[in-house]
C-alpha cells in the first residue's frame, strides 16, 4: 500500500459564445420618471453575477451611478431577445448590446439636460455621481432625477435606447478554408497535484493552480468566485460525476442526489489562481468572458496528474476508484513497489 503523487497540466482556448456567426443579444434601456435607468434583458442571471456586471457596464456607459441602474430580467417572453446565458457569452454579448443602448439613451439625457442648463449638449458631461454639468464650469449642473422629471413632464421625451450585438457571419475562403469563426477567445492553464491511494483507488486532489486570461475583468471578485466554483465542478467531473456509471446500459443510472455521486466540502483542494487581462477588441471595455470555461481545465489536468502518479494512461472519466485499481494492475510503478517490498 502506498500513496502515489502526480502532477498534471492542461491548457484551454475558450471561444466566447456560439461561433460561426450569429449568436445575438439585445437590450432596451429606459429612464423612469425619477431617473432610475431600467435595463430590460432576456439574459438570465444564474447566480454568476450577470445582473451586477451588466449594471456596472450600463452605469459606466450611461455615466450614472451604479445604484441608479436596475436590471430587469423578469420575462424571456416579453423582454428583448437574447440567445441565453451559456458558453461564457453573456457579459460579452449583452454588455455590447447595453453599451449601444446606453449611447442612445445618454444622448437624449444630455439633450434634455442641455435645455434645462441652457447649454449645448456637446458641452455637457456626466460626473458619475448623478449629475450632468457644463464642461469647464462644474457649478452649472443638474441632477439626473430632475432631468428625468423634465423629460417626462416638460418636454414629453423618453430617455431610452436600443442596443443589440451580433457578430457577422464570416465567409469561408474556398481556396484556403480560412475564416474568422469566433468573436474572442479567453485562455487558461492549470496545474493539478493529486495523491492516489493504491489500496482503495481513491484520488485526492491536493491543489489546483491556474492562470486565467479573460480580457478585462468587470468585477474581479465575481471572476475569482467563477474560477473557484468552476475548478471544483471540473474536479467533480474528473473524479465523481456521471449519469451513466455503467455506460452504455442505463441500468442503475442515478436518479437523484442520493445516488448521484458528488464531492463535498471535505474534497475541496487548495485552489489558487492569477488572472491576466489582455483586453479583447470587440468585447465591452475589453471583456472576453469567464464562466463555463472554468470547469474545462481541471478535467484534463487532474486526469494527467493521476496518469502521472500511477504511470498508466487513463482515457475515461470520471476516474472512479474502480478504474484506478484496474489501472494499477498494469502499472509499472506498482510492480516496482511490490518488488521493493518483497
Amino acid at each position: 500500500m502506498a500513496k502515489l503523487r502526480g502532477t498534471g497540466i492542461a491548457a484551454v482556448n475558450y471561444p466566447t459564445g456560439m461561433n460561426l456567426g450569429g449568436d445575438p443579444s439585445q437590450a432596451l434601456i429606459h429612464a423612469t420618471t425619477t431617473g432610475t435607468f431600467v435595463i430590460s434583458l432576456s439574459s438570465t442571471d444564474l447566480g454568476q453575477g450577470l445582473k451586477t456586471v451588466i449594471a456596472q457596464i450600463g452605469a459606466e456607459a450611461l455615466g450614472v451611478p451604479f445604484e441608479k441602474v436596475l436590471i430587469d430580467t423578469a420575462d424571456t417572453d416579453t423582454g428583448p431577445h437574447c440567445m441565453g446565458t451559456f458558453a461564457s457569452r453573456a457579459t460579452h454579448r449583452v454588455g455590447n448590446a447595453v453599451i449601444m443602448a446606453a449611447k442612445e439613451a445618454r444622448k437624449v439625457m444630455l439633450e434634455v439636460a442641455a435645455e434645462e442648463l441652457e447649454a449645448s449638449p456637446d458641452d455637457l458631461d456626466t460626473d458619475g455621481q448623478g449629475n450632468i454639468y457644463v464642461k469647464g464650469s462644474p457649478e452649472r449642473k443638474i441632477d439626473i432625477t430632475s432631468v428625468a422629471l423634465a423629460a417626462h413632464f416638460k418636454y414629453g421625451r423618453s430617455i431610452s435606447g436600443r442596443g443589440m450585438y451580433i457578430k457577422p457571419k464570416s465567409p469561408v475562403d474556398p481556396e484556403t478554408g480560412k475564416m474568422d469563426p469566433d468573436s474572442t477567445e479567453a485562455h487558461a492553464c492549470m496545474v493539478a497535484e493529486v495523491e492516489v491511494d493504491t489500496e482503495t483507488g481513491e484520488v485526492t486532489v491536493l491543489s489546483l493552480k491556474s492562470a486565467y486570461e479573460v480580457g478585462r475583468q468587470v468585477n474581479p471578485a465575481l471572476v475569482r468566485e467563477q474560477i473557484i466554483g468552476g475548478a471544483f465542478m471540473g474536479m467533480a467531473h474528473a473524479l465523481y460525476e456521471t449519469t451513466a456509471p455503467y455506460y452504455p446500459s442505463p441500468d442503475h443510472a442515478p436518479g437523484n442526489f442520493s445516488e448521484y455521486i458528488l464531492p463535498g466540502p471535505h474534497e475541496l483542494p487548495r485552489i489558487e489562481s492569477v488572472v491576466l487581462e489582455y483586453p479583447s477588441v470587440n468585447g465591452p471595455y475589453g471583456v472576453k468572458g469567464v464562466g463555463e470555461m472554468t470547469a474545462n481545465a481541471p478535467i484534463p489536468a487532474i486526469i494527467n496528474a493521476v496518469s502521472n502518479a500511477i504511470g498508466v494512461r487513463l482515457t475515461e472519466f470520471p476516474i472512479t476508484p474502480e478504474k484506478v485499481l484496474r489501472a494499477l494492475e498494469r502499472s509499472p510503478k506498482m510492480k516496482q513497489l511490490t518488488q521493493a517490498s518483497a
Partner: peptide
C-alpha cells in the same frame, strides 16, 4: 449540496 461556489466561500 452546493453546485455553484465549490464550498470555499
Amino acid at each position: 449540496v452546493c453546485r455553484c461556489t465549490g464550498y470555499e466561500s
